[in-house]
Amino acid sequence: MRPLRLIARLDIKGPHLIKGVHLEGLRKVGDPHEHAVRYADAGVDEILYLDIVASLYERFSLADLVRRTAENVFVPITVGGGLRNLEDVRLALKSGADKVAINTAAIRRPGFINEVVHEFGSQCLVVSIEAKRQPKGGWHCYTDSGREVTGRPVVEWSQEAVERGAGEILLTSIDTEGTLRGLDAALVREVSGATPRPLIASGGVGGRTHVTEGIAAGADAIAVAHVLHYNTESVAELRSALIASPPFHRSV
């Protein structure tokens, strides 16, 4: 069977869990740790912490938060935002993260992917891609939470990341992020078809039908944020949408 996952995505700014639209217009939601514990207890498959301003300040700041959460959350934790070197990655893993998500540092210096994989294994590296539709068609990669243009086509970069050893791809559509109108299914289909690695689709899930659509487009995992933060869908409801996609089965 093909294991599918429901991932709670928690964007962090300073000490706060926040939520934006198109990765901008951020609103405070609450304490990230409390939310993570609640989501894990409710049965999400993984926790994803992303410090969305860290790259701007060039620092990794979530070690304490991860350490606190790893104390009583027994599902995998991925952490990203501002990880620039092997020492940052080591600190993240040592603090209780199972995987790190890297975007800006990997695009700036693709060899960083190889270094992380060589040192810690590909299973712990999620390459994070922020994708935006281009007026002439296709998608380009952005960094720094959608602020910086790189000019790199998403499919080409995802393939390079995989060749360099990335274990998973986290694909966030800036266009759909925070809109609650559904994932960019065409983008998911394009990247899923182009790489042999598990794909986490993120951005735009406003309800359970969007989960099913993401899986149908080829995603292996769906990241959800708003619907959990504002309690408009329960984990159980989202999970039943995954179960409705035939290959999934984990009951809790």
Binding site: Q123, H249, R250
Partner: peptide, 12 residues
């Protein structure tokens, strides 16, 4: 068909 590697996720 193809299976994705690594095998990541919950399985029975």
């Amino acid at each position: 068909g193809k299976r994705k590697i690594p095998h990541i996720g919950w399985n029975a």
